[in-house]
Design a binder for these strands. Structure first.
Length: 404
DNA sequence: TGCTGAACCC
């Protein structure tokens, strides 16, 4: 029962509750080494890893490799728990591939790619998930070029030594999903195409993750027809499939196409429901098409029909939309009505609109906000100085440049 | 017991 509850995040509290019950009542069987990894999984959200750790020591299971690896994993998912994670990892008697990956992923999760790489290099044997963990660590932290370099290295190691087809460490679905994401972000269409061919030859196209990653890669590289083709033949279009297609079209200013896909998505209400990401893409489409009223309409729809609380990203889109259309009074009203503090993107969008429409007075106010936000960013200071120049405020130009 | 995708300004 604990195992069942531990398999899904929503039932994790129940798994922990049952575990406590087990401990409280002497008539129930004692926890064994099999149950602890599941219990540790249930600790991810509740930060109770330490308590379970104590229980493991009490029960005498702290030297079981599987339990140890589960401990490393559990600690590595607690915010700020990396020091504990490394301590447990350093005390391991026998370090197998699995605990190395767990530690590598722990580093990657907090953005410490250097240490992840260091550990990866210390490993004597590397399997496919090892490479995947490191490549994913790079792409998840925005190091796309580094991720691609690793992918190339992996492919080199896999194909150069032995004949194709029988070699070890061939990229799998997980690998290509990460690599395709990196291709999209860096615009590496050629490599992306090569990966598509590789997927086809390997015959693992059935996975929805892979299909979505292809849609995203082709979309970001501007091959909307290809993106659409891959999207259409995916028999199990999930939320991300729709979102990726909507986003791809929005990104390349195909507003009508993007909105059409959204409308089609709404028709598939029985299998999929738009989420906050959907509306970011949709609002983005409206912005690029200058469709102010439709933008408003969808913003309202998101709140009323779908009960989605607007995030700062949605406000960013809406303000961008209004700013580009020169509707500054409304844009300022939206900023005032926001339930959170505006961020750099919000002010940046507004400033962009001001520049397009020559509203230097408002631009001055907005640029000041940006400088306040990030005083060490010289770019904002330069923008402010330029605006003062436009306004003929030469003393302020001097002041602004002094601070750069 | 380990590794997977999408998102606001320029």
């Amino acid at each position: 029962m604990i195992t069942a509850y531990a398999s899904h995040p929503t039932t994790h509290p129940s798994a922990l509750e049952l575990f406590r019950h087990m401990l409280r009542f002497p008539t129930t069987p004692r926890p064994n080494h099999f149950i602890f990894p599941h219990v540790l999984k249930s600790c991810y959200e509740s930060r109770s890893t330490g308590l379970v750790h104590a229980q493991i020591i009490k029960s005498g299971f702290e030297q079981y490799p599987v339990v140890q690896t589960a401990l490393v994993d559990s600690y590595s998912r607690v915010l700020g728990g990396l020091r504990c994670t490394r301590m447990v990892f350093d005390e391991l008697f026998e370090r197998n591939v699995v605990c190395f990956i767990t530690m590598v992923s722990g580093y990657a999760r907090v953005g410490d790619v250097d240490n992840a790489l260091r550990l990866f290099n210390e490993m004597e044997e590397r399997d496919v998930p090892c490479w995947n963990a490191l490549i994913a660590g790079c792409t998840q932290n925005g190091l796309f070029n580094q991720g691609i370099e690793l992918f190339r290295r992996m492919v080199g190691v896999a194909f150069d030594r032995e004949g194709e087809g029988q070699c070890k460490n061939k990229p799998n679905q997980v690998t290509v999903v990460c690599a395709l994401s990196a291709c999209g972000h860096t615009g590496m269409l050629q490599l992306g195409r090569w990966i598509h061919g590789y997927i086809y030859k390997s015959g693992f196209m059935l996975n929805s993750f892979v299909s979505n990653a292809l849609v995203d890669m082709y979309g970001k590289c501007g091959r909307l027809g290809q993106a659409r083709k891959v999207f259409e033949i995916n028999p199990e279009k999930g939320l991300t499939s729709w979102n990726s297609m909507i986003n791809s079209l929005a990104l390349h200013r195909r507003s009508d196409g993007s909105i059409a896909i959204f409308e089609e998505m709404v028709e598939h209400a029985s299998s999929v429901r738009p989420d906050e990401v959907t509306f970011i893409g949709l609002l983005n489409a409206c912005t690029h098409g200058g469709l102010v009223d439709q933008g408003y309409y969808y913003f309202e729809m998101m709140i009323r029909e779908y009960g989605i609380e607007p995030q700062i990203e949605h406000y960013g889109c809406l303000i961008d939309l209004l700013g580009r259309a020169g509707r500054f009074d409304e844009a300022i009203e939206v900023v005032k009505g926001m339930s959170m503090e505006p961020d750099e993107v919000v002010w940046g969008s507004l400033l962009n609109g001001c520049k397009v429409h020559g509203r230097n007075d408002l631009a001055e106010f907005t640029a000041k906000k940006l400088v306040e936000f990030d005083p060490h960013n010289g770019g904002y200071g330069i923008m402010l100085a330029n605006i003062y120049g436009e306004l003929g405020k030469w003393d302020e130009v001097f002041e602004a440049e002094k601070d750069l």
